[in-house]
Design a protein around this nucleic acid. Structure first.
Lengths: 96, 96
DNA sequence: AACCATGATAACATATTAGTTATCTGCGTT
DNA sequence: AACGCAGATAACTAATATGTTATCATGGTT
Protein backbone atom coordinates (compact mmCIF):
# COMPACT_ATOMS: atom_id res chain seq x y z
CA UNK A 1 0.00 0.00 0.00
CA UNK A 2 1.45 3.30 -1.13
CA UNK A 3 1.33 6.49 0.84
CA UNK A 4 0.34 9.36 -1.39
CA UNK A 5 2.95 12.08 -1.67
CA UNK A 6 1.90 15.54 -0.77
CA UNK A 7 3.13 18.55 -2.65
CA UNK A 8 3.50 21.38 -0.21
CA UNK A 9 6.56 23.18 -1.47
CA UNK A 10 8.30 23.97 -4.72
CA UNK A 11 10.96 21.41 -3.79
CA UNK A 12 8.34 18.72 -3.28
CA UNK A 13 7.20 19.36 -6.81
CA UNK A 14 10.67 19.57 -8.31
CA UNK A 15 11.96 16.40 -6.69
CA UNK A 16 9.02 14.27 -7.71
CA UNK A 17 10.40 12.34 -10.67
CA UNK A 18 6.94 11.31 -11.73
CA UNK A 19 6.14 14.94 -12.39
CA UNK A 20 9.42 16.55 -13.37
CA UNK A 21 11.99 14.72 -15.49
CA UNK A 22 15.67 15.32 -14.75
CA UNK A 23 16.05 17.33 -17.94
CA UNK A 24 13.06 19.44 -17.01
CA UNK A 25 14.52 19.98 -13.58
CA UNK A 26 17.75 21.18 -15.16
CA UNK A 27 15.83 23.60 -17.36
CA UNK A 28 13.78 24.96 -14.50
CA UNK A 29 16.82 25.45 -12.27
CA UNK A 30 18.54 27.15 -15.16
CA UNK A 31 15.64 29.49 -15.82
CA UNK A 32 15.33 30.43 -12.20
CA UNK A 33 19.05 31.29 -12.08
CA UNK A 34 18.63 33.07 -15.39
CA UNK A 35 15.88 35.42 -14.40
CA UNK A 36 17.53 36.04 -11.05
CA UNK A 37 20.66 37.29 -12.76
CA UNK A 38 18.72 39.10 -15.46
CA UNK A 39 16.60 41.07 -13.08
CA UNK A 40 19.45 41.84 -10.68
CA UNK A 41 21.79 42.93 -13.45
CA UNK A 42 19.15 45.05 -15.10
CA UNK A 43 18.31 46.81 -11.86
CA UNK A 44 21.96 47.24 -10.87
CA UNK A 45 22.47 49.05 -14.12
CA UNK A 46 19.39 51.12 -13.44
CA UNK A 47 17.70 50.00 -16.64
CA UNK A 48 13.97 49.74 -17.17
CA UNK A 49 12.52 46.96 -19.29
CA UNK A 50 11.92 49.54 -22.00
CA UNK A 51 15.54 50.64 -21.96
CA UNK A 52 16.78 47.07 -22.04
CA UNK A 53 14.43 46.48 -24.95
CA UNK A 54 16.16 49.32 -26.79
CA UNK A 55 19.63 47.98 -26.00
CA UNK A 56 18.90 44.36 -26.78
CA UNK A 57 16.48 44.61 -29.67
CA UNK A 58 14.01 42.41 -27.80
CA UNK A 59 10.66 44.10 -27.20
CA UNK A 60 9.48 45.06 -23.74
CA UNK A 61 6.55 42.60 -23.66
CA UNK A 62 8.95 39.78 -24.53
CA UNK A 63 11.30 40.81 -21.74
CA UNK A 64 8.41 40.92 -19.30
CA UNK A 65 7.41 37.42 -20.42
CA UNK A 66 10.97 36.21 -19.85
CA UNK A 67 11.27 37.75 -16.42
CA UNK A 68 8.00 36.19 -15.32
CA UNK A 69 8.80 32.73 -16.73
CA UNK A 70 5.82 32.71 -19.04
CA UNK A 71 7.80 31.43 -22.01
CA UNK A 72 10.76 29.14 -22.67
CA UNK A 73 12.89 31.44 -24.76
CA UNK A 74 14.84 30.72 -27.90
CA UNK A 75 18.55 30.95 -27.45
CA UNK A 76 19.06 33.87 -29.80
CA UNK A 77 16.61 35.89 -27.73
CA UNK A 78 18.50 34.90 -24.61
CA UNK A 79 21.84 36.03 -25.97
CA UNK A 80 20.38 39.32 -27.16
CA UNK A 81 19.10 40.10 -23.69
CA UNK A 82 22.06 38.74 -21.72
CA UNK A 83 24.76 40.50 -23.70
CA UNK A 84 24.00 44.08 -22.67
CA UNK A 85 23.68 42.81 -19.10
CA UNK A 86 27.19 41.37 -19.18
CA UNK A 87 26.30 37.72 -19.24
CA UNK A 88 26.62 34.80 -21.61
CA UNK A 89 25.97 31.06 -21.48
CA UNK A 90 28.16 27.99 -21.36
CA UNK A 91 27.80 24.26 -21.87
CA UNK A 92 29.12 22.39 -18.86
CA UNK A 93 29.20 18.76 -17.74
CA UNK A 94 26.46 17.75 -15.34
CA UNK A 95 27.79 18.07 -11.82
CA UNK A 96 25.77 15.39 -10.05
CA UNK B 1 37.89 56.75 -49.39
CA UNK B 2 37.17 53.43 -47.74
CA UNK B 3 38.85 50.20 -48.58
CA UNK B 4 36.25 47.47 -48.88
CA UNK B 5 36.70 44.62 -46.45
CA UNK B 6 36.96 41.19 -47.95
CA UNK B 7 35.37 38.19 -46.32
CA UNK B 8 37.55 35.22 -46.96
CA UNK B 9 37.24 33.24 -43.76
CA UNK B 10 34.70 32.50 -41.07
CA UNK B 11 36.65 34.77 -38.73
CA UNK B 12 36.50 37.64 -41.22
CA UNK B 13 32.74 37.31 -41.14
CA UNK B 14 32.45 36.85 -37.38
CA UNK B 15 34.65 39.82 -36.53
CA UNK B 16 32.89 42.26 -38.84
CA UNK B 17 30.74 44.24 -36.42
CA UNK B 18 28.67 45.63 -39.27
CA UNK B 19 27.49 42.13 -40.04
CA UNK B 20 27.53 40.30 -36.70
CA UNK B 21 26.53 42.01 -33.48
CA UNK B 22 28.37 41.07 -30.29
CA UNK B 23 25.33 39.24 -28.99
CA UNK B 24 25.06 37.34 -32.24
CA UNK B 25 28.72 36.47 -32.03
CA UNK B 26 28.19 35.10 -28.54
CA UNK B 27 25.30 33.01 -29.75
CA UNK B 28 27.20 31.64 -32.71
CA UNK B 29 30.23 30.76 -30.62
CA UNK B 30 27.94 29.09 -28.14
CA UNK B 31 26.18 27.06 -30.78
CA UNK B 32 29.43 25.92 -32.32
CA UNK B 33 30.66 24.76 -28.91
CA UNK B 34 27.27 23.22 -28.30
CA UNK B 35 27.10 21.05 -31.38
CA UNK B 36 30.73 20.09 -30.95
CA UNK B 37 30.04 18.68 -27.52
CA UNK B 38 26.71 17.22 -28.57
CA UNK B 39 28.13 15.30 -31.48
CA UNK B 40 31.22 14.14 -29.62
CA UNK B 41 29.26 13.01 -26.58
CA UNK B 42 26.69 11.24 -28.66
CA UNK B 43 29.34 9.38 -30.62
CA UNK B 44 31.39 8.57 -27.53
CA UNK B 45 28.32 6.89 -26.11
CA UNK B 46 27.82 5.09 -29.38
CA UNK B 47 24.35 6.53 -29.86
CA UNK B 48 22.67 7.14 -33.18
CA UNK B 49 20.44 10.16 -33.68
CA UNK B 50 17.47 7.82 -33.54
CA UNK B 51 18.59 6.39 -30.20
CA UNK B 52 19.21 9.84 -28.77
CA UNK B 53 15.76 10.79 -29.99
CA UNK B 54 14.37 7.94 -27.93
CA UNK B 55 16.33 8.91 -24.84
CA UNK B 56 15.66 12.63 -25.04
CA UNK B 57 12.15 12.78 -26.38
CA UNK B 58 13.29 15.05 -29.19
CA UNK B 59 12.63 13.62 -32.65
CA UNK B 60 15.44 12.59 -34.95
CA UNK B 61 14.76 15.28 -37.60
CA UNK B 62 14.95 17.93 -34.88
CA UNK B 63 18.26 16.53 -33.64
CA UNK B 64 19.61 16.55 -37.18
CA UNK B 65 18.54 20.19 -37.51
CA UNK B 66 20.33 21.01 -34.26
CA UNK B 67 23.53 19.26 -35.21
CA UNK B 68 23.66 21.01 -38.56
CA UNK B 69 22.89 24.47 -37.14
CA UNK B 70 19.78 24.90 -39.21
CA UNK B 71 17.71 26.19 -36.28
CA UNK B 72 18.18 28.26 -33.15
CA UNK B 73 16.64 25.92 -30.63
CA UNK B 74 14.41 26.67 -27.70
CA UNK B 75 16.04 26.07 -24.39
CA UNK B 76 13.74 23.29 -23.28
CA UNK B 77 14.73 21.35 -26.39
CA UNK B 78 18.36 21.97 -25.57
CA UNK B 79 18.06 20.64 -22.04
CA UNK B 80 16.19 17.57 -23.22
CA UNK B 81 18.99 16.69 -25.61
CA UNK B 82 21.90 17.67 -23.37
CA UNK B 83 20.76 15.81 -20.30
CA UNK B 84 21.20 12.24 -21.55
CA UNK B 85 24.56 13.32 -22.94
CA UNK B 86 25.72 14.45 -19.52
CA UNK B 87 25.70 18.17 -20.11
CA UNK B 88 23.82 21.19 -18.87
CA UNK B 89 24.03 24.94 -19.33
CA UNK B 90 25.07 27.82 -17.12
CA UNK B 91 24.79 31.58 -17.07
CA UNK B 92 28.23 33.16 -16.67
CA UNK B 93 29.63 36.68 -16.77
CA UNK B 94 31.09 37.77 -20.08
CA UNK B 95 34.82 37.13 -20.06
CA UNK B 96 35.64 39.76 -22.65
C1' DA C 1 -5.37 65.91 -8.39
C1' DA C 2 -2.66 65.49 -12.49
C1' DC C 3 1.32 63.63 -14.31
C1' DC C 4 4.72 60.30 -15.52
C1' DA C 5 7.40 56.16 -15.68
C1' DT C 6 7.13 51.53 -14.40
C1' DG C 7 6.06 46.41 -15.22
C1' DA C 8 2.25 43.47 -16.61
C1' DT C 9 -0.81 42.06 -19.89
C1' DA C 10 -4.36 41.61 -23.73
C1' DA C 11 -5.13 40.62 -28.59
C1' DC C 12 -3.71 39.72 -32.67
C1' DA C 13 -0.27 38.93 -36.56
C1' DT C 14 4.00 36.99 -37.86
C1' DA C 15 7.93 34.05 -37.50
C1' DT C 16 10.18 30.09 -36.15
C1' DT C 17 10.73 25.67 -33.98
C1' DA C 18 9.31 20.97 -33.27
C1' DG C 19 6.38 16.98 -34.51
C1' DT C 20 5.04 13.77 -38.07
C1' DT C 21 5.74 10.87 -41.79
C1' DA C 22 8.21 9.48 -45.39
C1' DT C 23 12.01 9.17 -48.32
C1' DC C 24 16.79 9.58 -50.02
C1' DT C 25 21.70 8.77 -50.35
C1' DG C 26 25.79 6.71 -48.67
C1' DC C 27 28.17 3.04 -46.43
C1' DG C 28 29.04 -1.35 -44.70
C1' DT C 29 27.91 -6.16 -44.57
C1' DT C 30 26.22 -10.39 -46.02
C1' DA D 1 23.03 -7.33 -55.60
C1' DA D 2 20.32 -6.92 -51.63
C1' DC D 3 19.94 -5.55 -47.12
C1' DG D 4 20.02 -2.60 -43.05
C1' DC D 5 21.40 1.34 -40.56
C1' DA D 6 23.20 5.87 -40.61
C1' DG D 7 22.26 11.02 -41.10
C1' DA D 8 19.96 14.40 -44.03
C1' DT D 9 16.00 16.33 -45.70
C1' DA D 10 11.26 17.32 -47.81
C1' DA D 11 6.50 18.59 -46.86
C1' DC D 12 3.22 19.55 -44.02
C1' DT D 13 0.89 20.40 -39.37
C1' DA D 14 0.93 21.85 -34.72
C1' DA D 15 2.84 24.36 -31.10
C1' DT D 16 5.07 28.23 -29.35
C1' DA D 17 7.79 32.54 -29.18
C1' DT D 18 8.15 37.12 -30.63
C1' DG D 19 6.51 41.53 -32.71
C1' DT D 20 3.13 45.02 -32.59
C1' DT D 21 0.11 48.06 -30.53
C1' DA D 22 -2.38 49.46 -26.95
C1' DT D 23 -3.82 49.61 -22.41
C1' DC D 24 -3.92 48.94 -17.36
C1' DA D 25 -2.70 49.43 -12.47
C1' DT D 26 0.70 51.06 -9.42
C1' DG D 27 3.75 54.10 -7.20
C1' DG D 28 6.19 58.16 -7.05
C1' DT D 29 6.46 63.25 -8.03
C1' DT D 30 5.01 67.83 -8.71
Amino acid sequence: METAKTIDTFSDYMNDETRVSPAERERINFEVALIGKMIEAREEKGLSQRELAELSGVKQPAIARLESLRATPQIDTLFKVLYPLGYTMQIVPLSK
